[in-house]
Amino acid sequence: MSTHDDLSADHDPPVEATPSSRERLERALLHPGRGQVVAAVLLAVLGIAGVTQVRIAGTDDEYAGMRQADLVQALNGLQAASLRNEQEIRDLQSTRDALRSSSDRTAAALEQARSELSSLGVLAGTLPASGPGIRITITAPQARLSLNNLLDGIEELRDAGAEAMEINDEVRVVAQTSFDAADNGIDVDGQIVSSPFIIDAIGDPESLETALRFPGGFVDDVALDGGKVTIKQSQSIEVTSLRTPVKPQYAQSTKSK
């Protein structure tokens, strides 16, 4: 800081200075003097300090060497970032909750629609059904069964709570099913069924059989015409024939109430 400063303005002609400085350098390397010991001590101190500083700068975390003002600024920045992140977390959580509840509602609605579909499908005849019920076999003379008797029987079964019915394992009997007299049997929904008529009905077996067997009821009527009815209760009646669903052409559904 003192003597050496004055030298910065000093521009020696290199040609004249070089030989002597080279010689000095060689002499100092080969024959070190007393002054070099002091310089060596100071250089050792510099070496220690330099290596230590390099180690600190390389290994310590970035905040260790910072001043108070810088630290305060860094802290402010981190706090702002933390606030922003918390806000983002809240937003995302509310989004997640909304999505979750909406998906829950969708799943519940889907579940309800599925169960409604299956119960309506059984009633409309678009799904096969099984359950307890009775199997009625009617043997009519000359393969004839009075249309009125059959209708009466089916109405009695409906009255007793039959939930699914089919005739001869071929024709599903639903609300729209039509019956008509035919030459060699009965025309049910355009399909001719003939004797022996087998009616499968799912419902409470006791009630169904009672509904057919009361005095003056279906069994008696058929017997009057000379036919024969056998009723078998079972815990597993299979109603497998299906009916193609028809979209109503004139009737429109209206909101109830």
Binding site: S2, T3, L7, S20, S21, G35, A39, L42, L43, V45
Partner: peptide, 28 residues
């Protein structure tokens, strides 16, 4: 460390100029 480096380079230059003095080096 940087200040010491400056003193060392100044001393080396003074040495090459033939003006090196160990007392001046220590003080600087």
């Amino acid at each position: 460390v940087v200040a010491a480096l400056d003193a060392v380079f100044g001393a080396l230059r003074a040495f090459l100029d033939g003006l090196f003095d160990d007392k001046v080096f220590v003080v600087s």
